[in-house]
Design a protein around this nucleic acid. Structure first.
Lengths: 193, 193
DNA sequence: CGATTCCTTTTACATATGTTAAATAATCAC
DNA sequence: GTGATTATTTAACATATGTAAAAGGAATCG
C-alpha cells in the first residue's frame, strides 16, 4: 500500500512548483509506486509509448537512443529530478528512445494515464504538472543554446560547472555523445586542462 | 474594440488543441490585439521580460540574440504559429533575446499577464495553453536531436524539406546561424547540390 | 536611373573534430 | 587474485567547418 512517507522527496519536489490540497495529494499518492532498479537496466525500453513519469529518489539515469547503430545519450537526470520522454508522453506515440539507469537506483513512477485523468477532477494537479513541464521546456530551450552556439570545449566546461557529479558518476562515452562529440574529442579536451 | 472575427486564424489554431466554452472565448478575445509590424522591426527588444504571446497571422518572424557580437537566430515562425521567448515568459526574467519580424507582418498579441490570471477562472484556458506549450516542448526536444546528431548538410536538407517557404523568405545569413554554421559553410553546402 | 547598401558566393588558409587503430588503465566476474 | 572485459587515452591521418578578405549580384532609396 502506498503511503506518502515513501514519496517524501517527490512531494517535496512538487511543493516547489505548486502546493496542492490534502485531497489532491491523496489522489496523487495512489498513482505512485516505488521501485528499485539495478545498474544498467532499462527502465523503459525502445519502442514503447511513455506512460510513466519517473522521479529519481536515488541514483542516476539517462535517455538514450541509437543513431546509425551508435548509442547516443540525450539527457541525464540524478536525485530529485524528473525524467520523461516528452516526445512520446505528450504525443502518445511509441518512443525511439529508452531510459536506462546508470547506478543501482530507487525510482518513483507516476502513472501518467491515470494522472491525465485526474486533471479533470483536480485543476490544481493539472497546474502542478503544467508548471513542472514549463520548467522542463525552458531548460530544453536553454540546452539548444548551449549545444548550438558553444564549442565542444565550452559545453564540457559548462557541464563540469553545472553538474560535476554527473562527470563523476557516468562513463565518459555517455558524456561525449551527450555533448555531441566523439569520445576521442572529449579525451582531447580533457587532456588540455 | 476587439471582435472575434479579427482573430479567426488564432481561434482556429486554438481549437486544434482544446475546444473552449463561449464564455472562455469571450474572456480570451479581450486579451488579444491585432497589430501591423513593418519588415525588420523588433516586435520585442532585447532586455525586456516577455509578457506577450504572439501569433503570426501573416508574415514571418524570428527569435535572435547576440553571441559575442554576432547575430544568432534561434527560431523561425511563420503563418498560423505562435512565437514566444519561453525562457522569459515562464521565469519572469528579462530576455537576452529579441523577436523580429522579417516581412511586413500582421501579428496577434495575447496579453500573457492577464492570461495567466484567467487560468484561475477558466481551467479550460489553462488546459488550452498547457497543451500548446507541451507541443512546443516536444518540438524543442526534437530540435535538439536535429541539432546535435545531424551534420550541417543534413540539417539544411531537413529544413529544405520541412520548411521550404522559410528558405525562400529569409536571408541566408539567418538560416546559417539557425543551423549553427557560418554563412560560408552554408554557401558551400548549397553549392554541392 | 544611379549610387549605395546589403546579400551571397568564392578563395585560401587555419583549426576543430571525426575516424581508425592501438596502447593503457580500470573494472568485473569467477 | 587473475583473466577477461570494458573504459579511456593517444597517435596519425582525413574531413568538415571556421576565419578573413574579396568580388559579384541583388535590392533599396533618393
Amino acid at each position: 500500500m502506498p503511503s506518502q512517507a515513501q514519496f517524501e522527496n517527490l512531494f517535496h519536489y512538487f511543493k516547489k512548483f505548486n502546493s496542492i490540497s490534502k485531497a489532491a495529494e491523496e489522489a496523487l499518492v495512489k498513482l505512485c509506486s516505488h521501485i528499485k532498479v539495478p545498474k544498467n537496466k532499462d527502465l523503459q525500453p525502445i519502442g514503447y509509448t511513455c506512460k510513466t513519469i519517473y522521479f529519481i529518489d536515488k541514483g542516476i539515469a539517462r535517455i538514450y537512443y541509437y543513431r546509425e547503430g551508435i548509442d547516443v545519450t540525450e539527457f541525464f537526470a540524478s536525485e530529485n529530478s524528473i525524467i520523461v520522454r516528452a516526445e512520446s508522453l505528450f504525443t502518445g506515440k511509441p518512443s525511439r528512445k529508452a531510459i536506462q539507469v546508470l547506478e543501482d537506483s530507487e525510482i518513483i513512477g507516476v502513472d501518467a494515464v491515470a494522472l491525465f485523468k485526474l486533471y479533470d477532477q483536480f485543476p490544481e494537479i493539472e497546474r502542478l504538472f503544467r508548471k513542472i513541464f514549463e520548467t522542463a521546456y525552458v531548460e530544453t530551450v536553454n540546452r539548444i543554446e548551449s549545444i548550438q552556439f558553444h564549442s565542444a570545449k565550452e559545453r564540457y566546461e559548462a557541464l563540469l560547472l553545472d553538474s560535476p557529479d554527473i562527470l563523476q558518476r557516468v562513463p565518459l562515452k555517455h558524456i561525449a555523445s551527450y555533448l555531441g562529440i566523439t569520445q576521442v574529442s572529449l579525451s582531447r579536451i580533457r587532456a588540455q586542462r
